[in-house]
Write a protein that binds this DNA or RNA. Structure first.
Length: 464
RNA sequence: UCCCCGAUAGCUCAAUCGGUAGAGCGAGCGGCUGUUAACCGCUAGGUUGUAGGUUCGAGUCCUACUCGGGGAGCCA
């Protein structure tokens, strides 16, 4: 007998003989001589109704003892449903219990609503809930969408290293990777830790960005991207930060900042259009139970051109908005969360691409503009979650790059291979970084980033 | 890391002026019903986050710590 997944069973023709396998969500008994079992197998949002008649040989001994979480295989025939809520159901001729819940009273995912905070403590079982099943499917759909988008446009996926020996971006705290004895490490004559004795012969860390590495492949394969785990040892305790997260970083050669912004906009539109189509079931749930504006927001984003604005214009717009802010708005200062939210949620009411920031608040590798005051940086700001994309055109002129490295007092020798790119066939290029979990947050309306990754790693928390 | 708030039954919460612990859901048992957030009845379930302190007496007041939430910083 054919094994039908729930997503296919839901549209199967009455009369089809099938086996359905999954986990029990609920069981309801009827004295009319049957039990209704809602079975889910993760292949779609809805569970599938199994009707188990009382004449099954194990009806009293097993069927009536089924509880949430039990794994079962039901064999029978797809029939038109007599009840409301589903068009077809499986009338079981046999039902086998594959795995019992040994003590229903202790099963953490009981048949009631749970808070997300509670479910984080049972992350090994939370994927069985409506919400986390939906998040997992959306996460997958977006990941596949990213690869499809780039593949169709001739980009190559480059696997940049997880372990790195250079603190290239200077982007915050890094996790050290070491095999030295932490209690009694090898020492230099001066008493410091002797990293030449360490595994890599030097101090090594987990990557905070694949950008500098991927630039090398960009300057050979023209269009590339990274998509992998990224690590920040920042002591960030917010609903938007993880110590381990996934980042997407495209890099395009023979391209400037405008090309970069076009790419970012095209990518986001592609992803959300695809998501609304492919995961309509899960998106309907998010819109219904999590945030009743998500679908409208995504549709609007897909249809509307992003606003483009220079940093200078944004500062002016905020200053004359009449809004009162806790932090000052002044040219040369970085925009605060409240300013970004005001721009996207009140003044413009859609994603905004801010471009050309003052050089002093941006990284060394960003290309200096003609004015000598700003660099070709861009941030894509989204309503509610703020910065979703950060990127720039890279400084391709060696003399300008060196000047910036010196100004920021960075150790030039560490960037020898990055500088080589500017010596051997340099070319204008640009790229950006997209936080994958923030993308999922935006797409689903989920408030806390810890609920859009299977096993979140945050300060003081690495269970599971 | 900083500011604010919170922690009581398996889960979500209540408990008046400091006076000795309560509900809903879940679970177990029974009833009813082509049910679908099912419904009705009964039962079990507690070292009130941890460690101190004040008091005749602390879930309640004080201190420290741990964990969680909201906001901020850092950023994606």
């Amino acid at each position: 007998m054919a094994w039908l997944q729930v997503k296919d069973a839901a549209t199967a023709a009455p009369g089809t003989k099938a086996t359905i396998k999954g986990w029990v969500r609920t069981r309801r008994d009827s004295k009319a001589g049957l039990s209704f079992i809602a079975l889910h197998d993760g292949t779609c949002f809805d569970a599938f109704q199994i009707v188990a008649p009382a004449d099954l040989p194990n009806y009293e001994s097993e069927v009536q003892r089924l509880t949430s979480g039990c794994a079962v295989e039901a064999e029978g025939e797809i029939v038109a449903s007599q009840g409301k809520g589903q068009s077809v159901e499986l009338k079981a001729t046999a039902l086998r219990v594959v795995g019992w819940v040994d003590d229903p009273d202790t099963y953490p995912i009981s048949q009631k609503r749970h808070t997300f905070e509670y479910l984080r403590d049972v992350a090994h079982l939370r994927a069985r809930t409506n919400t986390f099943g939906a998040v997992a499917r959306v996460r997958h759909a977006l990941a596949m969408g990213v690869h499809r988008f780039f593949h169709e446009r001739g980009f190559y996926w480059v696997h940049t290293p997880i372990v790195t020996a250079s603190d290239c971006e200077g982007a915050g705290q890094m996790f050290r990777v070491s095999t030295l004895d932490a209690l009694n490490p090898a020492r230099t004559p001066e008493g410091g830790v002797d990293f030449t004795q360490d595994f890599f012969g030097r101090e090594a860390h987990l990557t905070v960005s694949g950008q500098l590495n991927v630039e090398t492949y960009c300057c050979a394969l023209s269009r590339v991207y990274t998509f992998g785990p990224t690590f920040r040892a920042e002591n960030s305790n917010t609903s938007r930060h993880l110590a381990e997260f996934w980042m997407i970083e495209p890099e395009i050669a023979f391209a400037n900042l405008a090309d970069n912004a076009d790419l970012a906009e095209a990518m986001l539109k592609h992803l959300f259009r695809m998501l609304l189509e492919e995961r309509a079931d899960d998106m309907a749930f998010f819109n219904d139970r999590i945030d009743n504006t998500v679908i409208q927001t995504l549709e609007h984003l897909v249809e509307t051109p992003f606003e483009r604005m220079t940093y200078t214009d944004a500062v002016a717009l905020l200053q004359k908005s009449g809004e009162t802010f806790e932090f000052p708005v002044e040219w040369g200062l970085d925009l605060q969360s409240e300013h970004e939210r005001c721009l996207t949620e009140k003044l413009v009411k859609k994603p905004v691409v801010l471009m050309n920031y003052p050089k002093d608040i941006k990284a060394f590798y960003m290309r200096m503009n003609e004015d000598g005051k700003t660099v070709a940086a861009m941030d894509v700001l989204a309503p509610r979650i703020g910065e979703i994309i950060g990127g720039s055109q890279r400084e391709e002129r060696l003399d300008m790059l060196d000047k910036r490295i010196d100004e920021m007092k960075l150790p030039k020798e560490n960037y020898w291979w990055y500088r080589d790119l500017r010596r051997y066939g340099t070319v204008p290029h640009a790229g950006f970084g997209l936080g994958f979990e923030r993308l999922i947050q935006f797409a689903t309306g989920m408030q806390n980033i810890r609920d859009v990754i299977p096993f979140p790693r945050t300060p003081g928390s690495a269970e599971f």
